[in-house]
């Protein structure tokens, strides 16, 4: 395969796929092309999209790469088609999810210890939305169930993987951060949208 052929193929595959494509899958399809070369082309393509004012973007999400529309296009897309979006998560759901995401795997009692509130209802909701799953049992008395986040969790928040979660900040740092909220929000935008 000629070098110049690789990039358009990757672009077409990203365009047609409804799911994030893994690098290994691209390597299977592009027979004989090195992983390093695929990554090089992919990043170059990603960069081209970012640079040239496109309605689409290429982002790393849930361990793969996906072509998505840019967030700024949402009003026009909604104009074109009725899109069903799930309701937003409640504050208790978000807090519980944050605890599970950072401390997984952990038991319901461990979640409740941090929030000081019963977690049964919230856990049920999160499991129904497939953002959280039972990952096993803790080998202590009573063998309680332990919970973890799912692939849908990454897809829902547009996270590349679990390590893409921002590090937990200590209280003092948070106080400092509150002094410059605008600059920080901008940074978060950049990180999430993958620009």
């Amino acid at each position: 395969m000629e070098d110049y052929e690789i990039k358009p193929i990757i672009e077409a595959l990203l365009f047609i796929s409804a799911e994030p494509i893994f690098i290994d899958r691209l390597k299977e399809i592009l027979v004989g092309v090195e992983k390093k070369q695929i990554l090089e082309k992919l990043f170059s393509l990603q960069e081209e999209y970012t640079r040239s004012n496109r309605g689409m973007q290429i982002v790393e999400v849930a361990g793969g790469y996906q072509m998505t529309t840019r967030a700024e296009m949402a009003p026009w897309i909604r104009e074109l088609e009725k899109i069903k979006t799930a309701s937003r998560l409640s504050q208790p759901s978000l807090e519980t999810l944050a605890i599970i995401a950072y401390k997984q795997p952990l038991t319901r009692a461990e979640i409740e210890a941090i929030r000081g509130v019963d977690a049964a209802g919230v856990l049920k909701t999160l499991m129904e939305r497939r953002l959280v799953k039972i990952v096993g049992r803790k080998e202590v008395a009573g063998r309680p169930l332990i919970y973890g986040t799912t692939r849908e969790f990454l897809l829902y928040f547009g996270l590349a993987n679990l390590t893409a979660l921002p590090t937990l900040k200590e209280f003092s740092e948070i106080s400092e951060r509150e002094a410059e909220p605008e600059r920080d929000a901008e940074q978060e935008m950049t990180m999430v949208v993958g620009v």
Partner: peptide, 19 residues
């Protein structure tokens, strides 16, 4: 705080669509 961050991700990612 982490929940607040997740919420901001949620806000952005709800505006992003895939095929």
């Amino acid at each position: 705080e982490a929940a607040g961050t997740l919420e901001s991700y949620e806000t952005i990612w709800r505006q992003v669509f895939v095929r």
